[in-house]
C-alpha cells in the first residue's frame, strides 16, 4: 500500500458504501428541491450524469410536481430543458407558475425509435441541463443507451414509464415509483446506497 486513502473520501465518491441509510446528505448530487426526497436519496438529490426513472400509475398524481423545482432551478440558471414526446400539452401558465422559464424549454414530438434517438442525441450533446422523455416502449438495451448517453454528456436524464415496469430490471441509477392511492413515493433502486425501506409520504400536498 503506497498511498493512504481516507475512508470519508471513498464513501463520498461512493466507491464504498455502508449498509445503512446515509443520514447526512453530502450534497454531491443535484438537489430535487424536495427536502423529504433529498434526505432519503444518497448524495442528497438526483444522481448527476445518470438516468433516473419515474414510474407512475396514472397521469395527474404529481408526476410533474416532483420535477418542477429541479426544472425551475435549471431553467432559471440558463440551462435548457428538453421534453421528448410528452403525453399531453404542457400548460404554459402552470409551468410558469412553478417557476420554469419557458424560454429555456424545448419540446420534441417524435415517436418510437425517433424519440429514443432524439433523447440520446440531446443527452450526448451535453448542451441540455435535463432531458425528460416519455418512452412508450423502452427495453433494457435502449435504457442502457440512455444511461451511457447521460454519462457522456453529463446531463440529468429522466424517463417516465408506466408503473408496470417496476418489476423489470433497469440500468437506471435511480428508480422512483409514484403511487396515487395512498399518495406516496417509493424508492426501489438507488445507486450508492440502500433504498429507504418505507415509502415516503408526499410532502407537497
Amino acid at each position: 500500500m503506497s498511498s493512504v486513502v481516507a475512508l470519508d473520501r471513498l464513501i463520498d465518491a461512493r466507491r464504498v458504501w455502508r449498509g445503512q441509510v446515509v443520514s447526512s446528505p453530502s450534497g454531491a448530487n443535484f438537489s430535487t428541491g424536495h427536502h423529504f426526497l433529498d434526505a432519503a436519496l444518497p448524495g442528497g438529490g438526483w444522481p448527476k450524469a445518470a438516468l433516473s426513472e419515474v414510474l407512475t400509475a396514472a397521469p395527474g398524481i404529481g408526476e410533474m410536481r416532483l420535477l418542477w423545482p429541479t426544472l425551475a432551478s435549471l431553467t432559471v440558471s440558463g440551462e435548457r430543458v428538453v421534453l421528448i414526446s410528452p403525453p399531453h400539452l404542457p400548460y404554459p401558465q402552470a409551468w410558469s407558475d412553478a417557476g420554469v422559464d419557458l424560454r429555456q424549454l424545448s419540446i420534441i414530438q417524435a415517436d418510437g425509435r425517433d424519440a429514443l434517438w432524439a433523447a440520446e442525441q440531446c443527452l450526448r450533446s451535453g448542451s441540455c441541463g435535463a432531458v425528460l422523455s416519455w418512452l412508450r416502449q423502452a427495453d433494457d438495451r435502449s435504457l442502457r443507451r440512455l444511461q451511457v448517453a447521460a454519462a457522456t454528456g453529463q446531463t440529468l436524464a429522466f424517463a417516465y414509464r408506466p408503473q408496470a415496469e417496476a418489476t423489470n430490471p433497469s440500468p437506471a441509477a435511480l428508480r422512483l415509483v409514484l403511487d396515487s392511492q395512498p399518495a406516496q413515493l417509493r424508492v426501489i433502486k438507488c445507486r450508492g446506497g440502500l433504498p429507504p425501506a418505507r415509502p415516503l409520504a408526499l410532502a407537497w400536498h
Partner: peptide, 28 residues
C-alpha cells in the same frame, strides 16, 4: 467540460432528421 455540441447545432440536427415541425418551444 464535455459539452461537445452546442444547442444550435443539436437543434439543426434534430430538425434535419425529425422534420421542421417536430421541435418547438412553448410560450403563453
Amino acid at each position: 467540460p464535455q459539452q461537445n455540441q452546442p444547442w444550435e447545432q443539436l437543434r439543426e440536427r434534430l430538425r434535419a432528421r425529425l422534420g421542421d415541425d417536430a421541435l418547438h418551444g412553448l410560450g403563453a
